[in-house]
């Protein structure tokens, strides 16, 4: 059961930012020494606020960015492998469902061509075979086959997101990255899409990396999760553990920010500025906003400590 599919080892992605033509170049630590392992067939949640490096991490997994350092292994093979054949196989194995389905589809192509694109790229199916395969895929995501003739702009947001999912599973990838797949949809449609994703996962033994800032969705979908803050993982563990007993102050802050239907949640506001990912501060990166900050926090770099029961946390105060 716990066969490791994706192994991210000390992965970093830095960007060089230059202010103006002759300005000094600075380093933006988008993803900083991230290590994670995803088990085959699980749904792994990755949570954090905007700008924390979630997207950079998923784009690195998709090979849209080359990692600055560290390695990513998918089913045992390194994604930044030098041989083209391996790289190509890895592209096939990792697919993504994008947040904004409208933005992620060429408005000039018909749905059939959108879904058929990965097949065109990676298989030698004839046009007729491809069309049939597209019809099957559309059926799998709960859409009638004649949608293939429509343009993305003629569909609703939920239908388009189903198209995005059909496109992503066309090649039967090992890992599916879901980049906030439901955040652009309204509540009832969100539920439908999430259920579809769950069904597909069961049917096809897919592994999901579920990137989101919506904690309730992550709780519903994922078995294990990681919380990211400013390029670093601050806490990992099973979803159950983290929701029952969040250890890192940042995780607690996120939990408290979730609105409660009874309306009896006490909202604690955390003051302080979020530091910039350019030249991050020494010590704990959350120190500027943390209510429990001590002297040690601002002076020493915090490392991710392993705790009992497959948990780890980046805070010296947490037990």
């Amino acid at each position: 059961m716990t066969e490791v599919l994706v192994e991210i080892d000390n992965l970093s992605k830095y960007f060089t930012v230059r202010s103006g033509w002759f300005g000094a170049s600075k380093t933006l630590h988008a993803v900083d020494n991230v290590s994670l392992s995803l088990h085959k067939g699980e749904c792994f949640g990755l949570v954090g606020e905007s700008g924390c490096g979630k997207s950079t991490l998923s784009r690195t997994l998709l090979q849209l960015y080359a990692p600055t350092s560290g390695t990513v292994r998918i089913a045992g093979s390194d994604i930044s492998s030098v041989t083209r054949r391996v790289r190509r196989r890895n592209t096939r194995n990792v697919q993504m469902v994008f947040q904004d389905s409208y933005w992620s589809m060429n408005p000039k192509l018909r749905v059939g061509d959108v879904v058929g694109e990965p097949l065109r790229t990676h298989t030698k199916l004839s046009a007729a075979e491809r069309n049939r395969k597209v019809a099957i895929l559309l059926e799998q995501v709960g859409l009638p086959a004649d949608f293939a003739r429509r343009f993305p702009s003629q569909l609703s947001g939920g239908q388009r997101q189903r198209i995005g999912i059909a496109r992503a599973i066309a090649l039967q990838p090992e890992l599916l990255i879901l980049d906030e797949p439901t955040s652009a949809l309204d509540m009832s449609v969100q539920a439908q899409i999430l259920n579809l994703l769950k069904d597909l996962q069961e049917e096809q033994q897919l592994t999901y990396l579920f990137v989101s800032h919506d904690l309730s969705v992550v709780r519903h979908m994922c078995t294990r999760m990681a919380v990211m803050y400013l390029g670093q993982i601050v806490e990992t563990g099973t979803t159950e553990q983290i929701f029952a007993h969040p250890l890192h102050p940042y995780t607690r802050m996120l939990m408290q920010a979730v609105p409660d239907i009874e309306g009896n949640a006490e909202l604690t506001f955390y003051d302080g500025e979020m530091p910039k990912a350019i030249d991050p501060p020494v010590g704990c990166r959350f120190a500027s906003r943390c209510p429990h900050v001590t002297e040690k926090c601002t002076q020493e770099n915090q490392s991710l400590r392993e705790l009992d029961g497959d948990r780890s946390v980046r805070c010296h105060l947490a037990m």
Partner: peptide, 14 residues
């Protein structure tokens, strides 16, 4: 810079 180009790239389209 638009998403569909990124999507195509991530699929390994030439």
């Amino acid at each position: 810079e638009r998403g569909f180009v990124e999507a195509a790239k991530s699929m390994g389209v030439h």
